[in-house]
Design a protein around this nucleic acid. Structure first.
Lengths: 242, 242
DNA sequence: CAAGGTAGGTGTACGGCGTACACCTGTCAA
DNA sequence: TTGACAGGTGTACGCCGTACACCTACCTTG
């Protein structure tokens, strides 16, 4: 039996197994407590063993990002550009919600991984081929969509981000807005309590991140569609027309 | 003379001096090489001395962020909401361009600092008071603007971001797009070469980040203005109207 | 089947990090 | 004069990433 455990333990390491274990560890313990040593321990192996499969910790992170990017659904092929882009982005968002550390990891890397480049590239392809966007407009659109292309907006300081840093779902309730802060930042307090009720006196249940994401996404998509229909080009002016 | 140096060295530390030195160090060496030990060395002091002025490294980073936020101009008071918001955001952008490590630091912190909350709060105030936005719409707008409110979009993997990580201006040229990558990611290559020329065969000088930032900003602002004029509310539908 | 190259796990060690904790010292109030 | 206290010091601990030498089990080739 001891030797059975031994056998299991000795299931040969592989880059893939290392990456999967790293993703699992980050998912449950948060990215900041992912260390080569802990990862090795999870795999029943000595830390240096990992270096036979990944060059260093940075490359490990790149690999983890690629695992997540690999979970994004391929584009559907039976709809107009806007629906295709929208669905793909929402799929990316789902992948990133499953791995709340990923936005931070992606932002922190200093080089786009090939998987991310491939994803972005196919997104441009959709704009060009299905939407008939000029390279010019497609270029600006990619910038305008920014991180939303990768399934997250800059949801600064929200629960998901915090989870990515310190582990999975935090038991403490969202709780609207601390009273002391409400006094100092009344406008923020009003907003926090107003999720989708216009009555500021109602202390709402926080806000629906998914709704906010789609709101901004559609705002951009609609604006972009308008530019596209007008045949907008950066030659004619320095700002998008109203 | 040696005692003069000594005197200078012994200029008493203060939270302010510590924060300034930390900002300077991050500006010139990159955020990732900011350590308590190096910072102490720059200040001619032993590492533990810093802990008499900041509780720990996280609080140091919060303080550094507040220094940057403090550089954002106050709102002008003689224009419509859109111009006020636009100018303030561009001022925030300038502050962040002076400190390329700041976006990373801001994204990485898990709590908004009071300075950032104050900044965001005043931004909501502008929307409410000058633009007559409902709390509801103001709420969604804050989400939609996302990190743009703080002067940066998610400019993934660009030079400024890299600078924030590894020090100041990198001497190597932007260089369009590496040839091998161009083959693998043709759409990206086309875009990279097409900055503001629609002719994809022209290999442009990279792209104008400032233009891209303002493009996206105005796209959002225009879309938001349209919603405002229509008296949009989330009660009537789940998406912004086209 | 023997020889030896090679892929992959091991052990040790180094330098750097954040920071706890005990200590010292100069200043100022009582 | 005393003694509290603010603020700089020194030492030490446990963590980190990873360089480097090693060992071992397997596969190829003669």
């Amino acid at each position: 039996m001891a030797e059975q455990v031994e056998t299991l333990r000795r299931t040969p390491l592989s880059r893939d197994r290392v990456l999967r274990a790293a993703v699992a560890l980050a998912d449950e313990a948060g990215i900041e407590s992912l260390s080569m040593r802990k990862l090795a321990q999870d795999l029943g192996v000595v830390p240096m063993a990992l270096y036979k499969h990944v060059a260093n910790k940075d490359e490990l992170l790149d690999g983890m990002i690629d695992v997540v990017v690999g979970e994004i659904d391929p584009p559907v092929s039976d709809a107009d550009w806007k629906r295709v882009v929208r669905r793909r982005i929402l799929s990316a968002r789902e992948a990133l919600l499953r791995h709340p550390w990923a936005p931070i990891a992606i932002e922190t890397r200093n080089q786009a991984t090939p998987a991310i480049l491939g994803y972005l590239n196919s997104m441009v392809g959709i704009l060009r081929d299905r939407g008939g966007f000029s390279t010019d407009l497609a270029h600006h659109v990619m910038h305008a969509m920014g991180s939303r292309m990768l399934g997250f907006s800059q949801e600064l300081f929200d629960d998901a981000r915090r989870a990515g840093r310190s582990g999975p779902a935090d038991p403490e309730p969202p709780a609207g807005f601390p009273a002391e802060a409400a006094a100092a930042f009344p406008h923020l307090a009003a907003i926090a309590g107003a999720a989708s009720h216009d009555d500021a006196s109602v202390v709402g249940p926080g806000c629906d991140d998914q709704f906010e994401f789609e709101f901004a996404l559609d705002l951009l998509l609609d604006g972009i569609e308008r530019l596209r229909q007008q045949g907008w080009t950066s030659h004619v002016g320095t700002q998008p027309p109203a």
